[in-house]
Design a protein around this nucleic acid. Structure first.
Lengths: 197, 197, 197, 197
DNA sequence: CATGAATGAGCCTTCATTCAT
DNA sequence: GATGAATGAAGGCTCATTCAT
């Protein structure tokens, strides 16, 4: 894995932020893990805040793109939603550091880091509402549920399952089973009656 | 409102932690808001961590008790679940400081504050699974959904809606409508087919 | 000498700033010399800049008052001006640290420390122009010299002599002789012709 | 203006040092303004200190030579002294950056930059004492004033006027008038009685 | 010669915690 | 119990200087 300095620092920051939390994380340690000097960090990022925000914005990109690809693999809104749920939790399993950052720190940051708006995160959330709206237009999803609420509700559900998984040291929780259960609840919950599932 | 010093400090801490976040919050400011000297804080609490944990443990008590009361007001599991959802979001509206603390800081703390286990929070979550199990036993809720997963999923949904509300400055989001939508999704999603709702 | 903490820090700062210069001076060392912890410095002063400005403003007060007293000791403008010159250089001799600060750092600060205007310093300078104006009114000093220029010129002369003295390690320069010479030059230079001196 | 790299760096340093002060000035910014890479600066100068000292030593040369030329234009010591005063202040007006450096930073440096002796500066000062001694020998200047003191006193006077001018943003101060006033004071002050002026 | 990315020592400042009163 | 002045460890960030290219 041949990475540029910037990329190495970003990866290191993900690890350290996830392990220690943003406020406990030391820039020096991020630099050490990245194999660069402290000062180098400041060549690529304005400050510690910028480092976190950059993670959110830049690491979200491949995540969003991957998710889009997964969704487009399957034709129907129902399958797309299942795919979203499954793929989200797979990602949590495969990239636990990044997942934890998104779960824990994104919330902090939205509120406490000056001027952070979380554009990419909203884009991710909107994938859900887009699928849902498509399903509503096709008549497979209920019209008495608002897409903006549904996206929050489904994401929140996934996120809580993720948090619980991430915080458990044993990692014995079966995320695939959780994905299946969430799919069942939501697809039943949001589908129009008499839809074959 | 005649409060003891300890209680005054606790209340002040809730406000400051919610406003500034745990790490940005200054003990001195909590003391000032509580109308006591900094040193006094350390007479009642071991340290800053202890202050946060005490909030979680002690402030959760009335919340849990209130919730229990609300749930017991209504007879059926379906109504109990609706009550849970509605009451939770009402609380968010009425105690936004406490709500925010639970949303944002509880996550941090679970991981970063040494030796915190979040007993009371688990107790709160279990209220959901208890209702759900009761419903399963009565045959109104599906048996292919695990209570331990359902409780996470529903709480996560509520929590995300709350977070979104708390972070929005305008507070124009209608939490009652959200409660209604969540109820619809979940009750349809978890009920056994052909149940009258 | 029983001093409050604030006063002790101020005195220590004068010494360290004079010895090392503002930029080379370390707050930690000032604190050490003052016999307090670093943090204590920040209880009494906003920051390093404030420390320097406070010196200028507060230490100038007794200096100005002493000077006023010296001036009022003697009746005529000629004698007052002599007194100013002599007393200024005596002060340089007795308080070399403070003198150096005023010579070297005041110039820096006027330009580089945000929002510093040097009120007290201007007040000091004005003592000269006041004496001079008094002499002009009495007809003993020439009217073709502007007081605002004279005050700069005389102060500059004294200051350069002081700087030279302060920078010389041996301190073999006779400041009293210098005072005498300066008096001669200036009193001849600014007096109206045919004045007995 | 076709300049070698070294010269370009030196000119840039004068500007930046004057604008920001020695300690606030960044080598990188000097290099940028000079249009070279940071590293290049270190090919021509040992370090930041050396840069400042080189300015003093090398930029003083043409200044001294110019001044000598101006002085030699006129025959008598009295006129020479007037010429010195006028030309010095003209220079301040025409080269404000260099003037400021000499005023403010030279003082700092004399004390805080290891091993700096200010040879060229002393040479400049000595121009004054030489004129004065010449006048003494010709009987036009008083013998009870020491040349070494007079040079300090006159330079100090000029320097304070300069500083005041340099620090004033408006630059509305009339330096020519100041030159005239200084000449009047000093020539009267140092001349032997009954000299025609 | 020239470059400029990389280095890392160093310093100001903050703030949780203590303790003499 | 209550106070709040004092403490000092700790960390983010800067910038003069180096060196591989």
């Amino acid at each position: 894995m041949r990475l540029g300095k910037r990329e190495k620092i970003l990866k290191a920051a993900v690890k350290i932020f996830a392990r220690d939390g943003f406020f406990n994380a030391k820039v020096e340690e991020i630099a050490r893990l990245a194999g660069v000097a402290v000062g180098t960090t400041y060549l690529y990022f304005e400050n510690k805040d910028d480092l976190l925000i950059s993670i959110f914005e830049e690491e979200m990109l491949p995540i969003i793109n991957n998710m889009k690809r997964e969704i487009e693999r399957v034709p129907t809104p129902v399958e797309k939603l299942k795919a979203f749920i499954t793929h989200h939790l797979e990602m949590v399993k495969n990239k636990p550091d990044m997942a934890q950052l998104l779960e824990v720190e994104l919330r902090q940051s939205s509120k406490f880091i000056r001027g952070y708006t979380g554009t990419k995160f909203r884009e991710y959330l909107n994938l859900i509402s887009q699928i849902f709206e498509e399903g509503q237009q096709q008549g497979v999803f209920r019209h008495d549920i608002k897409p903006t609420i549904l996206k929050q509700v489904l994401f929140g559900a996934l996120d809580q399952i993720s948090t619980n998984y991430t915080l458990s040291r044993s990692k014995k929780i079966d995320l695939l089973e959780s994905a299946d259960q969430i799919s069942r609840i939501f697809l039943t919950g949001i589908s129009t009656p008499n839809q074959p599932r």
